[in-house]
Design a protein around this nucleic acid. Structure first.
Lengths: 222, 222
DNA sequence: GCAAATATAATAGTATTACTATCAATTATG
DNA sequence: CATAATTGATAGTAATACTATTATATTTGC
């Protein structure tokens, strides 16, 4: 994947003006990610971001209609990127078991390096997804936003891996539950291991989270 | 449990003035729960609650130092209540397997009836926990709040069930991960089944969520 | 190379939020 | 019944999440 110029295309419904279409737009994404990571979603504001990038609050509003929709945009960008990784990592694998295994690894492993293919720091973005993404759908307007397609990239990723599950075991009754539980569960475990370690069994230097979810999957599909 | 006068005792660090000690305090909890359920955590305010209970914003602040700490209080109240249920439901079970099974059922089943032992509507509180409780710990101040003991009731519940897991299989390496994944996972699945059903495999009339997590547990501990 | 179109910046303003502070009125208790 | 404790009313603050308007750059098409 490292030599590949991937183009993560984001549905226009997620923005007012495409942030990838201008230098300012890219700066908004880049520094926006850094600031949400640093301040947390609640304390982050477009005003502060404007100061940081020597631009203006009102200019940022021309790209995203609200702080919430900026988060939703980032979440969709992230899942598009993960989808890309999934597709390329599984395309040449012929065994269904291995394809599923590889997918679960991608969904649960720590993202350690910013490959710099894109202008986005994926390590930071991943951390935001872990600690803030649930705020994108834990809102009173979920149903309305779901209708507008706000969560479709995430759903597509789940469905994709779900298909691999059914290839391994066509009779398994809970493929969607399994995959969405693994994805959310891995995020929780990573967050807990950093902040509430007594809720996990993560050992230093070990890839406990990947191992746990792989073991879980294998045993339940057997 | 129905004839039992349980007393859910809440650590004084979670409030300024004990809400269970006065009529106003109880009203704050009771109506507060209803309003968070109705408006969502973000749109809920102490001012609106004051209007609803014919009291005053400033009076509510005498019970809870902030909206956030009110949520934290409710989350702890909920886990104390669940802990109670767990203790009573497992006390007379002699088989370790059955004890674990019963616990997982309690942690994953839908709470359908307000038993009215307490003045709290547990059905509504459970719904708040499902959709809002992650906001109690997905905050930039997690570490500080963790030190203050804000999440201790939840941790105690996880540890309790974790002990049952180790009784069933003392060699299992990931008991905390398993239980916290089940708890959070069940909440997610319930939320998804209502708002993002394509992420689940919930069938009407069936207890799919309980069954899924029971199956997962049994197969991974085998 | 310049006018027109477009993008960005600056400024001001709004309703609301999440509180704090102060003081008055009520209610409970010895 | 007086005193203390609780609750209520009012006012105020800094910040948030925007919107609206106007001014200034920058890009582009000819």
């Amino acid at each position: 994947m490292n030599d590949l110029q991937i183009n993560i295309s984001i549905d226009p419904s997620f923005y007012c003006k495409d942030p990838e279409s201008s230098a300012l737009g890219k700066k908004i994404m880049q520094v926006g990610i850094e600031m949400i990571h640093e301040l947390g979603y609640e304390a982050f504001t477009f005003k502060k971001l404007g100061v940081q990038i020597n631009s203006n609050e009102s200019s940022i509003y021309r790209y995203f209609e609200s702080k919430h929709s900026f988060l939703v945009y980032l979440v969709n960008w992230y899942w598009s990127w993960i989808e890309c990784k999934l597709v390329f990592a599984t395309i040449n694998i012929h065994s269904a078991e291995e394809r599923l295994e590889k997918s679960i690894q991608i969904l649960t492993e720590e993202i350690k390096e910013d490959n710099e293919i894109t202008f986005i720091n994926e390590v930071l973005l991943n951390k935001i997804i872990i600690s803030e993404s649930s705020k994108a759908y834990h809102t009173i307007d979920v149903d309305k936003e779901n209708e507008k397609g706000y969560y479709k990239t995430y759903k597509r990723v789940v469905q994709r891996v779900c298909d691999f599950v059914l290839e391994v075991n066509p009779k398994f009754e809970y493929p969607h539950m399994l995959i969405s539980t693994i994805i959310e569960g891995a995020h929780h475990q990573k967050y807990f291991s950093k902040h509430l370690p007594s809720l996990t069994d993560v050992e230093e230097g070990k890839n406990s989270i990947v191992e746990f979810f792989l073991k879980l999957t294998k045993s339940v599909l057997r």
